[in-house]
Design a protein around this nucleic acid. Structure first.
Lengths: 130, 130
DNA sequence: GGTTGACCTTCCAGTGACTGTAAGGTTTAT
DNA sequence: ATAAACCTTACAGTCACTGGAAGGTCAACC
């Protein structure tokens, strides 16, 4: 399987797969005699795993840790679970931040006429010392 | 006022203030005869404005647009309001994404024993084709 | 056999919004 | 006189890619 087939099967782009190889996140792919990278089902599994890990919010360092668990038959599931719970907590904190930001925006928009004139509660609020 | 005083009065770091000057977001600061940047109340207002705009989620391009509205006495408040409402919508979309990610993580964690053994629903889920 | 188009390769630069670090000049206090 | 706490510029690094250039390979069609 060439890289673009691996890309469409895994959900990553070909560029991203090469990048993951460059930074050592995945092992260098086998090459055909033409120099093209070759992928088998096992490598597709790893690529898909990484795509999913990224999708649920893990960064590359964390995704690598998870991948190492996947690869290790002596793993302990508590390690995976603790990474997941920690990420979930981080997402929760980020969500709360974004909600607070959104609240602020709504409060400002509510007090702004939004007309043709220059008077604007939004600009006043943003410039105000707090 | 030197840059570190401007930094503590505005909520930006001195580094960030220099960076904003470099990229043309703010006008070059006046310099004392020693070459140090000098800030007055007007520039502090602009810096604080930018800090607040960033805090509520605007990127630098959007913050610049808002700053231009602040500077322009002929502005129309509907322009500021529309930027705020659009950002609010974007935040809402991001929040929904993060909530969905968190849901997925919780669902995976729920089905994982989290013990000393290798069996792990999390790793199974991440590797599974969807 | 030639040519087109779709692949593939490497390498380098750019993104956004800073932050860190180095090497040096200035000011203030002791 | 000296130490510390400022200030300056310039360049590299961060994160996770993405875009583009320059060139090699392959499959299909005329």
């Amino acid at each position: 399987m060439n890289i673009s087939a691996a890309a469409s099967r895994s959900g990553l782009s070909a560029k991203t797969i090469r990048y993951y190889e460059d930074i050592g996140l995945i092992a260098p792919a086998h090459r055909g005699q033409n120099g093209y990278r070759q992928y088998d089902e096992g490598s597709i599994n790893e690529l898909r795993f990484l795509a999913h890990a990224r999708d649920v919010g893990f960064d590359l360092h964390e995704s690598k840790q998870l991948l190492e668990l996947l690869r290790n038959p002596q793993r302990q599931s508590r390690h995976a679970r603790s990474l997941v719970l920690e990420k979930s907590q981080q997402l929760e904190e980020r969500i709360q931040q974004l909600l607070a930001m959104r609240e602020q925006l709504m409060a400002m928009a509510d007090r702004c006429q939004g007309d043709e004139g220059p008077d604007c509660a939004i600009l006043q609020d943003l410039v105000a010392d707090r």
